[in-house]
């Protein structure tokens, strides 16, 4: 099949960008979206043009490196999948596609479709350490965990940090990512000692990075490749209230 692509080209963070039109020819249905772009880049290289920069690593939907807006939807039309797991059979011959990078104040464009998502790492880092026993591994069943908590924590831990939630959100909010990260530790025994401090620091870091605030549009949930539920945003809010009004750990004087 043949496709027309309007791709955002931007040399670096400071320079202005613009859309450039490309024709992708002889695209196979079995290709992934990124393989289609690889093929286009090879053609550009032969023509001595600058290839299109986009991020990817694992190409099997588990690392969270890839991601772009395809026709106004983060990670494109396939639900519950990253763009590396989006195959060309989801498109038809003659389709016109617009490829844009994630856009958020906290995600400056580095080049073309590549953005700097370090603000998400900052949120994780602000969460700080967990108190864990070092040395030999403890006996596997020495810390009992309710099945329901383990399941929920697993759902939250599925977040791969791709940033699609931020990109899709009309408010540019990172609440789904932060909610997932806060919840997955709050639900498990090793997360308990620093539970209150962690949520306060992570919410502060989230606000500091310049993200917007959640008004529960649920766009994030709809585009999340790991289908993380907005109930983890409610959990973040609950954890934050708990840390401030219920938890007795002295929160204030500790650095994260």
């Amino acid at each position: 099949m043949n496709l027309t692509l309007h791709i955002w080209r931007q040399k670096n963070t400071r320079s202005p960008g613009r859309f450039v039109r490309y024709e992708a020819t002889s695209v196979e249905r079995e290709m992934s979206f990124l393989e289609m772009l690889d093929q286009l880049n090879e053609k550009l290289l032969i023509q001595r043009e600058e290839p299109i920069a986009f991020d990817s690593d694992c190409r099997e939907g588990i690392c969270g490196t890839c991601g772009m807006m395809i026709n106004g939807v983060a990670h494109g039309p396939r639900r519950g999948a990253t763009v590396c797991q989006l195959h060309m059979r989801y498109f038809r011959d003659g389709d016109v596609l617009r490829l844009e990078p994630w856009r958020d104040k906290a995600f400056p464009v580095i080049r073309d479709l590549v953005v700097d998502r370090r603000s998400l790492d900052d949120i994780i880092q602000a969460g700080g350490f967990i108190s864990a026993r070092t040395g030999s591994a403890p006996e596997a069943n020495s810390i009992p965990v309710p099945k329901s908590s383990a399941d929920l924590a697993m759902d939250a831990a599925a977040c791969i940090g791709c940033g699609a939630c931020v990109a899709a959100c009309p408010n540019g909010s990172a609440a789904l990512f932060t909610g997932a990260k806060i919840s997955h530790l709050a639900l498990m025994p090793p997360g308990q000692p620093e539970r209150a401090r962690r949520v306060i620091h992570m919410v502060t870091a989230m606000d500091q990075a310049g993200f917007g605030n959640c008004t529960m549009h649920r766009e994030c949930e709809a585009v999340c490749p790991k289908e993380i539920s907005v109930s983890f945003i409610a959990q973040m809010n609950r954890e934050y209230l708990r840390a401030n009004f219920k938890e007795r750990e002295v929160v204030a004087p500790t650095a994260g």
């Binding site: 617009r98 856009r103 958020d104 104040k105 009309p170 993200f211 649920r218 766009e219 585009v223």
Partner: peptide, 17 residues
């Protein structure tokens, strides 16, 4: 929220809101 996206999308489609 309005300040969090200085460069707007050319195209944005609602899928969850």
């Amino acid at each position: 929220s309005l300040g969090s996206r200085p460069v707007k999308y050319q195209q944005w489609e609602p899928v969850g809101s």
